[in-house]
Simulated scan of single mutants.
Amino acid sequence: MSVLDRIHAAGIVLPAAEMPRALYAPYTLHHGLLTISGQLPLQDGKPMFIGRVPGTVGVEAAQAAARLCLANLLGWACAATDGNLERIRGIVRVGGYVAVEPGFDDAPLVINAASELLNRIFAERGRHARLALGVASLPFGAPVEIEATFALDA
């Protein structure tokens, strides 16, 4: 089964890659490394989740937000590889940021939703180093933001 087949089997619909109107690139390619900028839980350009965990956004909803961030991230990976996700040889690192209420110290539980999905989609190639941090706020009031670096075949 191909990576794209596993993405579809996981119920993920890859979004169309639209260049942001901002002062950064959505991804960079450098010496076989694809680094994708932080992705928010947006769908059709609109936030699907707003608030901090676990106050206005419960842990399960934050995990769903993390999966949506990952779908957006994979959309950029697809664009960067011209649709050939088989070029991904491994995931070097995932950074996950969770907007948390004071006292909530389980950001890794939220980011686990994205890590589990990466492991399911990429199998052994999906194992990765990871950062999971609780932060005071994220852009547009999002509860989760995820970025990643992939190792690519030439």
Rank of each mutant, 00 (worst) to 15 (best):
3 V>W: 10
4 L>Q: 13
5 D>T: 07
6 R>V: 11
8 H>A: 14
13 V>L: 09
14 L>C: 14
16 A>T: 05
21 R>P: 03
21 R>G: 00
21 R>D: 14
23 L>P: 04
25 A>F: 10
26 P>F: 08
26 P>D: 10
31 H>E: 15
31 H>G: 02
33 L>P: 00
36 I>Q: 02
37 S>C: 10
38 G>W: 01
40 L>T: 00
42 L>G: 02
44 D>P: 05
45 G>W: 15
46 K>Q: 14
47 P>R: 03
48 M>F: 01
52 R>G: 01
52 R>N: 09
53 V>Y: 05
53 V>K: 00
53 V>M: 10
54 P>C: 08
59 V>L: 14
59 V>E: 12
60 E>D: 15
61 A>I: 00
62 A>Q: 04
64 A>S: 09
66 A>L: 04
70 L>F: 04
72 N>Q: 10
76 W>A: 03
77 A>Y: 06
79 A>R: 11
82 D>K: 03
83 G>I: 00
90 G>D: 00
91 I>P: 06
92 V>G: 05
92 V>K: 14
94 V>M: 06
95 G>R: 12
97 Y>G: 05
98 V>H: 06
99 A>V: 07
103 G>I: 01
103 G>M: 08
111 I>D: 06
113 A>I: 13
115 S>A: 09
115 S>R: 12
116 E>C: 11
118 L>D: 02
119 N>P: 00
122 F>Q: 10
123 A>H: 12
127 R>H: 07
129 A>I: 01
129 A>Q: 09
131 L>V: 15
131 L>E: 13
139 P>Q: 07
139 P>E: 08
140 F>G: 05
140 F>M: 15
143 P>Y: 07
147 E>V: 11
147 E>D: 11
148 A>N: 03
153 D>N: 04
